[in-house]
């Protein structure tokens, strides 16, 4: 999927809606996380998954939540998505308090989240259908967004006949078909092989350039975080908390050539050092309190 054909495909997008979501980029897609605490279990089995998280994400910003597994980064994402209710603090998207999942916050899961009994096109058309547009119109939107991710040829295939990378592309198209102001991605490329992964990252940036919606992207891969984001929010485990906020000022558009450039490597080193330092610091603090 090269950029030229992709722009051609974009010609069929609903430009009025796209324009609305882009023009709103100064207003739409603002995420505000204030003193958010998420706990699981009760009494003796109580476990703090996210501790006192504070985070402001500007509209149109691409932010990666980076951290080891079990650090609560997915939990924080799920709280923004509305799947998990914080026990303290405040979560707002565009001023609206998050009370549950909603189509304005599109979600892309790690894997196996497509409806296996629906064709690829029906999967993508599901959001518009739920929004109340007719079946015919929903199918049109479905086709448009499948074209966007380069899978028009597979519209009548069932998801299980597709490769993992293709399934994730369908997942992205499905989330975008609702024209969400916020795209939440939970390690979407974590289960893919390295080659497919790099290609998917490039495609995602291409798509994001057109939509320019806010993206909150969870990953444990430093390369991925540096390559994709404007900002890296680093989390640490037990209890899960935000330990660093690193701006990524690498030029865009980015391609995989960036991965070997000195600026990229320097930033990656800086991230590693910061994470290491913060982790050590956290260890010391823990040891001191014990």
């Amino acid at each position: 999927m090269n950029s030229a054909t992709q722009l051609n495909r974009l010609a069929v997008l609903d430009h009025s809606r796209l324009a609305r979501s882009q023009e709103g980029s100064s207003r739409k897609g603002h995420i505000s996380v204030r003193n958010v605490q998420v706990e699981f279990g009760s009494d003796a089995g109580r476990r703090v998954a996210v501790q006192d998280a504070n985070l402001e994400i500007r509209p149109g910003e691409f932010v990666c939540l980076l951290g080891p597994s079990g650090c609560g980064k997915s939990t924080l994402l799920n709280a923004v998505a509305g799947f998990v209710e914080p026990c303290a603090g405040e979560l707002r998207v565009d001023g609206q308090r998050v009370k549950g999942p909603g189509p304005e916050r599109g979600m892309v899961f790690q894997q196996h989240s497509l409806f296996p009994w629906k064709t690829v096109k029906e999967n993508v058309a599901f959001g518009p259908l739920m929004a109340g547009v007719g079946k015919f119109e929903a199918d049109q939107v479905g086709r448009t967004f499948l074209g966007l991710v380069g899978l028009s040829a597979y519209e009548d295939a069932f998801p299980e006949t597709l490769s993992g990378g293709m399934q994730q592309r369908v997942g992205i198209a499905r989330a975008l078909a609702n024209y969400p102001s916020v795209l939440l991605m939970d390690e979407p490329f974590g289960a893919l092989d390295a080659q497919t992964r790099i290609m998917m990252q490039e495609n995602l940036l291409d798509i994001w350039r057109e939509f320019h919606n806010t993206v909150l992207f969870v990953t444990h891969d430093i390369d991925e975080a540096v390559f994709l984001s404007d900002r890296i929010v680093v989390m640490s485990a037990s209890p899960g908390r935000i330990i660093a906020d690193i701006p990524v000022r690498l030029p865009r558009p980015r391609s995989q050539d960036l991965l070997t450039e000195p600026a990229f490597i320097a930033l990656k080193r800086e991230c590693l050092a910061l994470i290491r330092q913060e982790t050590l610091h956290a260890f010391e603090q823990q040891n001191a309190t014990h």
């Binding site: 999942p101 909603g102 189509p103 599109g106 979600m107 899961f109 599901f126 739920m130 989330a175």
Partner: peptide, 12 residues
């Protein structure tokens, strides 16, 4: 997971 996906897509 699929129920979550459907909810995030606006399904009642």
């Amino acid at each position: 997971l699929l129920v979550r996906a459907a909810r995030s897509l606006g399904a009642s």
